[in-house]
Amino acid sequence: MSLTFKDKLKSKDFLITSEISPPKGTDLKEVIEDAEHIRELVDALNVTDNQRAVMRMSPLAVSRTLLDAGHEVIMQLTCRDRNRLALQSDLLGAYAMGIRNICVMTGDHTTKGDHPKTKPVYDLDSVQLLSIIKKIKKGYDLAGNRIDNPPDFLVGAVSNIDQSKSAQMMKLRKKAKTGIDFIQTQAVYDIGKFEVFMESISDIEVPVIAGVIPLKSAKMARFMNRNIPGINVPDDIIDTMENTEKPLDEGMSVCAQTITELKKLCRGTHMMPIGKHNNIPKILEMADIRKKDQC
């Protein structure tokens, strides 16, 4: 049997994860196609949970579909849409459906999404949910009742990568204290800054999987700088994107260079290709990792 994500996390391998967004609808064709583009190139697929508070199919259903198609998944779970009962019950359901890896986050506020009047839940925060998962793994629910056949999840959390944001760093330490197995980060563009971040958490022994998003244009870079918290595309990259005739190719090349640098600094990369999964093989090839024929 091939190695699981858990096994690989324990190895010295440089890990590749990628993101799959559930559909707005009931057709799973595109999800399966996206995953197919990167079969055997990535170690696990993160299935997002109503990402940016936009209503989509349940990540539980999509995760199971991908498992059935032979992929390994990391199911994301936000605190925005479920109270403590629903979170715990979805966790049990996910494990029973074969999901072994989860990644927990607070979740963007409902006002940012396509149903802005939704009552946000936030019954728990990410640190609290992580400590509850720890308890569940030991065989007890939050109320202290016994759980039969407790789930043995591999648990991840997310982080921004700006070491100067002290409050966020403090929270990351709280997450780490709950005994998480991996951290996936916001997209990295400024390797220097990321290095500072990695140094600042060198005492935390949790594998870090650094996010990357291939740029499509200089405009996209500027947009993200203005609107996506935690993303900081440096000016020289924006200039490169501005001055090229082939921004898509340049974006992929920038991304590949970033991944090459990341290999020296952390345990893996999390690729968020925004609908362009067919570009991932090329980017990985440029970064000189895991060409399909070598697998």
Binding site: C79, R80, T106, D108, H109, T111, P120, Y122, D125, S126, V127, Q128, V158, S159, N160, A167, Q168, M170, K171, K174, Q186, N227, P229, G230
Partner: peptide
């Protein structure tokens, strides 16, 4: 708005 007691959400700009 998220009533977070353990630290910020990372969404501040």
């Amino acid at each position: 708005p998220k009533r977070l007691l353990n630290g910020p959400c990372g969404g501040a700009v």
